[in-house]
């Protein structure tokens, strides 16, 4: 099925983390997923979790440069959500999700990739969480908000950029240590 221009624009918006695109995709697809989850032993809170995770899977797909979705956004989100919900049900020892009339596509690759990325995310989240302040803010300011060492030094109250640089180096080493100790344990 060919994507229309509108859907393409939405996906590009999603890849940029654009709020309006996210809202539009959310609005058009959420009810479908909520119905799927609620009709299969879930509640609206579960539906929210599943839908948002499916959105993350879609984000990962378009972010990795793969903007050419070979199906409609709706079909992709539905297929992913169904897989995610089935997985959740399996952990609760239930194995069935009733067949719907929605079109589906194979999302095996995406699910595998997502599992890995989700794992990476959790490791980084834990490492960041274990880092403490001011290290966390310092590294975020430099690496994520791309602030200059000069700004950071004045913002964090270091006497000069050299001191800030030393501190940043120590913090980075600690974060790396925290991250890789987990990462190497969990990945083969």
């Amino acid at each position: 099925m060919k994507l229309d221009n509108n859907e393409n624009a939405l996906l590009q918006g999603l890849a940029r983390n654009d709020k309006r695109a996210i809202e539009s995709i959310y609005k058009d697809n959420y009810n479908l997923i909520q119905a799927l989850v609620i009709n299969n032993n879930g509640n609206s809170e579960d539906a929210k979790d599943i839908f948002q995770e499916a959105m993350i899977v879609l984000f990962e797909k378009v972010r990795s440069g793969d903007v050419t979705l070979n199906c409609q956004v709706r079909t992709f989100i539905y297929s992913v959500s169904r897989r995610l919900w089935l997985k959740r049900l399996m952990t609760m020892n239930r194995f069935q999700v009733a067949e719907g009339h929605e079109e589906m596509v194979s999302v095996d690759e995406e699910m595998e990739e997502h599992e890995k990325r989700n794992n990476d995310f959790l490791i980084m989240e834990k490492a960041m969480g274990g880092l403490g302040e001011p290290c966390k803010s310092l590294l975020e300011a430099f690496y994520l908000q791309k602030k200059s060492m000069q700004d950071i030094a004045s913002g964090f109250g270091y006497t000069n950029p050299e001191n800030a640089k030393n501190q940043k180096y120590k913090c980075l080493m600690r974060l790396k240590k925290l991250f890789f100790s987990q990462y190497k344990n969990e990945s083969p």
Binding site: R63, R117, D120, F121, M124, E125, L144
Partner: peptide, 9 residues
């Protein structure tokens, strides 16, 4: 990894 973490967050 850090950038991905930030984007996802």
């Amino acid at each position: 990894q850090m950038n991905r973490f930030d984007e996802t967050r």
